[in-house]
């Protein structure tokens, strides 16, 4: 019945904007990283390595289990002791929550060798789809800047 009808698939960055709309006080920081997605995304996906250098809300991340794109991890948070995170990690999409923290990252190929990246998240009102409205914008900007810097460093190292 749907054969031949046009369809639209909102890319991960668009999806992140939509999902963040359901999280009170969430802000989405979006920017363009001057590196291709196949350089940018492996940095985000490296949960036990690069991830903690980009998203400094989470430190010393340890992956507990993976099942398809599902991931369970533990990490130290700058807001408190080690916490357990659960979520989804797949190409272009990362969504992790603990009781006290939420991290969402999306990336989309711009088709010109650059990557659109979006961050959201912050300190979570425990167990709720709501964030403490402090630092949600500045942390996103810092995450984006750190990812851009790490991407460019990796691009330079590969040359």
């Amino acid at each position: 019945m749907t054969a031949g009808w046009p369809t639209a698939d909102p890319d991960p960055v668009r999806r992140l904007h939509a999902l963040a709309a359901g999280v009170r006080n969430a802000h989405v920081t979006e920017g363009v990283v001057d590196a291709p997605i196949d350089v940018v995304w492996p940095l985000v996906a490296d949960l036990e390595g690069e991830f903690g250098k980009i998203v400094t809300d989470m430190a010393r991340v340890r992956v507990i289990s993976r099942d398809g794109d599902r991931v369970e991890a533990s990490a130290h948070s700058r807001f408190g002791p080690r916490a357990r995170f659960s979520g989804v990690l797949r190409p272009g999409w990362c969504w992790l929550q603990s009781r006290f923290l939420l991290v969402g990252i999306a990336a989309a190929d711009r088709g010109d060798g650059r990557t659109t990246v979006a961050f959201t998240g912050g300190l979570r009102l425990p167990g709720r789809a709501a964030l403490v409205p402090v630092g949600v914008r500045s942390e996103g900007r810092r995450n984006l800047a750190r990812l851009a810097a790490r991407s460019q460093a990796h691009t330079a190292a590969e040359r």
């Binding site: 749907t2 009808w5 046009p6 369809t7 639209a8 698939d9 909102p10 999806r15 939509a18 999902l19 359901g22 999280v23 659960s86 979520g87 989804v88 969504w95 929550q97 939420l102 979570r124 167990g127 709720r128 789809a129 709501a130």
Partner: peptide, 23 residues
């Protein structure tokens, strides 16, 4: 308030919404 459930709901709804919106 389970944001992971919201994530899963997004995965379920995005293709459906795309089929309505594109035409």
């Amino acid at each position: 308030g389970d944001t992971l459930a919201m994530n899963d709901l997004l995965d379920e709804l995005a293709p459906f919404v795309g089929r309505i919106c594109a035409p």
